[in-house]
């Protein structure tokens, strides 16, 4: 019930490379488009990058349950309540698959959660925005899950096997969430003027978090970033792409997202809050306003009400449940001991 998955928790320990052909074999697997599995040798940097990325993704699923979870008790029809329950449940499930995938790299789920609670690791800052109305649940599912699908679809072919397999399940469910989010927004847009106003207000607030934060910092000059601004992101992306962890730049994926959302917003009769959005015949893409990263980063530091609140909520749940987890551990230990005596 509460026992953490121990799948391969030790299997990921790095065997020594001791001069034999292990690094060459790793490079050959990557070059050949094969997957790296937990028992394969891998460079420390590869392992570290994966742990960081998978943990951040798992944390984002768990923290991302909060803004929508807050609306479970207020969903305006029993059908919508059921759909939202299923979605929040999927997010808990995604968090669990991803923690299990991270554990195959030799880390422990409890340590990852501890790192989240103590601020050593982070969830996506997207969820450091509040869900203020019912329409926010629709906008989150349509826009941020929509961004997640575009971001994550290539991860189904990422080079680390357990991560790729977890992502295949995650992506299928995320695609379903996007359709449900769109449907929630459609119902509001076809409803009363007050409902439509609520939908537009939610899109006004969730558009920029989706465009900016779901894809990460600029890593090319495409978004209008100068070379100096894009340099740190570009370096990380180059490394991740060389290792087959990433397949596309942040900016490519961001463009793909904007291109998919504009016609959907038009069909809904909603306005995306960016006056610069227009079709660029020459590029074959929609233009949009470059994200003002400096301002945006400042607004999203750890010292904002919602950044603090998300972690405080998570930590309170964890601390309140400590006695339950202790009971489960004590009971399991006793059952193991009794089993040992019987044997």
């Amino acid at each position: 019930m509460t026992a953490r998955t121990t799948t391969g928790a030790t299997a990921g320990a790095t065997p020594s490379a001791d001069g034999d052909g292990l690094p060459a074999r790793f490079d050959a697997l990557i070059a050949g488009g094969e997957t790296i599995e937990p028992r394969d040798w891998m460079p420390d940097g590869y392992r570290r990058m994966l742990v960081r990325q998978i943990a951040q993704h798992a944390h984002s699923e768990i923290i991302g349950m909060q803004p929508e979870g807050a609306w479970l008790t207020r969903a305006p029809s029993l059908h919508r309540k059921s759909v939202l329950l299923a979605k929040v449940q999927d997010e808990a499930g995604h968090g669990l698959y991803l923690y299990s995938a991270a554990e195959t790299l030799g880390v422990d789920r409890a340590d990852l959660l501890d790192a989240l609670h103590k601020g050593r690791q982070r969830a996506s800052a997207t969820f450091n925005h509040p869900a203020l109305t019912w329409a926010d649940t629709g906008a989150i599912a349509w826009l941020t899950d929509g961004a997640a699908v575009i971001n994550q679809a290539p991860l189904c072919r990422t080079s680390y096997g357990p991560y790729a397999r977890a992502m295949r399940r995650v992506c299928q469910e995320e695609a379903f969430h996007v359709r449900q989010g769109y449907d929630t927004m459609r119902a509001l847009c076809e409803g009363t003027p007050e409902q439509k106003e609520m939908a537009q207000d939610a899109v006004n607030r969730w558009w920029l978090p989706a465009v900016a934060l779901m894809f990460g910092p600029p890593d090319t000059g495409a978004g209008g970033a100068d070379a100096r601004t894009a340099a740190p992101g570009a370096a990380v992306s180059r490394r991740a792409m060389a290792w087959g962890i990433k397949r596309h730049t942040n900016d490519e994926l961001r463009q793909r997202f904007v291109d998919s959302c504009v016609p959907q917003a038009e069909r809904l009769g909603l306005t995306l809050p960016d006056p610069a959005i227009r079709w660029n015949e020459e590029r074959g893409h929609y233009d949009f306003t470059p994200v003002d990263w400096d301002t945006y980063r400042e607004a999203l530091g750890d010292d904002t009400h919602w950044a603090r609140q998300r972690i405080a909520h998570r930590r309170a749940a964890h601390e309140d449940g400590a006695w339950v987890r202790e009971a489960a551990a004590a009971y399991a230990a006793r059952a193991d001991a009794a089993g040992g005596e019987d044997a």
Binding site: M1, T2, I62, T73, L85, V88, Q89, R325
Partner: peptide, 22 residues
Amino acid sequence: LCQWITRAPTVDEDLALSNIAL
């Protein structure tokens, strides 16, 4: 049970309780 979700002692329990609520 909806009031428990995101407040359960473990993520596994968030999942179990949301499943029961559903």
